[in-house]
């Protein structure tokens, strides 16, 4: 789990940072194609993560179980989050 979470965290951060850059450099085509390639990777990483460890979002993520996993998974501010997922 750690590796998948780490990968997703890194991809999402790259997207956040690039998006801020693009807000003030909206015509930088290289940055846009880099942004798109990161978003594509992050999307597939997010799907993989949710399939294995449960929903990331309480109102966008598909529920794969008949019981509501959202309330059961550890929260990211506890150290359990990194060990018990």
């Amino acid at each position: 789990m750690e590796n998948l979470l780490e990968e997703l965290t890194q991809l999402d951060f790259a997207a956040v940072d690039l998006a801020l850059y693009l807000n003030t450099h909206p015509n930088d085509e290289n940055a846009i194609s880099l942004y798109n390639s990161i978003i594509t990777k992050a999307d597939s990483c997010r799907t993989k993560y949710e399939k294995n460890f449960g929903p990331l979002c309480s109102f966008r993520s598909f529920s794969r179980n008949n019981n509501w996993t959202w309330i059961k998974n550890p929260w990211p501010w506890s150290t359990d989050f990194y060990s018990k997922l």
């Binding site: 965290t9 979002c57 309480s58 109102f59 959202w70 990211p76 150290t79 990194y82």
Partner: peptide
């Protein structure tokens, strides 16, 4: 807003 159940940067303090 959309909340995601993860931190922007991990916090693992022993």
């Amino acid at each position: 807003w959309i909340y995601e159940k993860k931190l922007e940067y991990p916090v693992k303090i022993k």
